[in-house]
């Protein structure tokens, strides 16, 4: 019997491709965010609100990850920004390779912001670097306040938490202070926004912050 020492990261291939993506983004001066959440927390809704705020001020493009459909891409296309759909055919997360392939359909030159909407899932996308500058996790009030404790890897790897659907707080069992506290316990460095895509609350604060991150304003 022989033992072969390997000591290699299982997702090393993905990390390498993500690094290639990151260098490509850097060369083009494109700021890239990776939007993650459970299914239905409001990623696409937030994206629509954000596009309404920012699309005339900076150049934005979108990569939409979806297990099966291009429904979200259709919603985004209404804003007249370039959008590329990745259908994962059952895959529960985006990988750097899929993003790299999608990039061949996008013009990065002069692009200020690229938003990648990941597949709705709080577990799997946590481990897959896509080459983004930051991960943004969206948690909605209808999911309750314990999500950060149940999905620590995602909240730990994210830089921003958007608490969405705050208009529903009176009707659901979710304590905003508790949600915030749970998230900050997992990751004290999180920047937190509270939004409602229905009333528009918090959208401007979030969009202004994002605009500032791109360094183009």
């Amino acid at each position: 019997m022989a033992v072969v020492t390997i000591e290699r990261k299982v997702l090393q291939k993905n990390d390498e491709l993500a690094q290639e993506n990151r260098e490509l983004f850097a060369r083009n001066g494109t700021y890239v965010i990776n939007l993650v959440s459970s299914p239905g927390s409001g990623k696409t809704s937030l994206l629509e609100k954000t596009l309404a705020q920012l699309k005339d001020r900076i150049k934005i493009a979108v990569v939409e990850g979806d297990v099966q459909t291009d429904l979200d891409a259709q919603r985004v296309a209404k804003f007249d920004v370039p959008v590329v759909q990745i259908v994962t055919n059952g895959g529960c997360h985006l990988e750097a390779k899929l993003v790299q392939d999608a990039l061949s359909n996008l013009r990065l030159e002069g692009l200020d912001l690229l938003v990648i909407e990941n597949v709705g899932n709080l577990v799997c996308p946590a481990g897959y670097d896509l080459g983004e500058a930051i991960k943004i996790v969206v948690a909605s009030t209808t999911e309750g306040d314990d999500k950060p404790l149940k999905y620590p890897a995602m909240f730990r790897n994210a830089s921003v938490l958007i608490i969405n659907k705050i208009d529903l707080v009176p009707y659901v069992n979710c304590n905003l202070a508790e949600l915030r506290e749970n998230a900050l316990q997992i990751n004290p460095h999180l920047t937190v926004f509270e939004t409602s895509c229905t009333t528009g609350a918090g959208i401007k604060e979030w969009s202004d912050w994002l605009l500032a991150q791109t360094g183009k304003h």
Binding site: M1, A2, V3, V4, T5, I6, E7, R8, K9, V10, L11, G127, L149, P152, R156, Q185, I186, N187, P188, H189
Partner: peptide
């Protein structure tokens, strides 16, 4: 899952272990 220093309670910690996902070795 409390990500603060247990000694001084400061938030500025680096995770030095716990994220691993590695193939260590194979036996043939």
């Amino acid at each position: 899952l409390v990500f603060r220093c247990p000694r001084c309670h400061g938030p500025h910690i680096t995770i030095t272990s716990g994220n691993e996902l590695q193939v260590v070795e194979i036996e043939i």
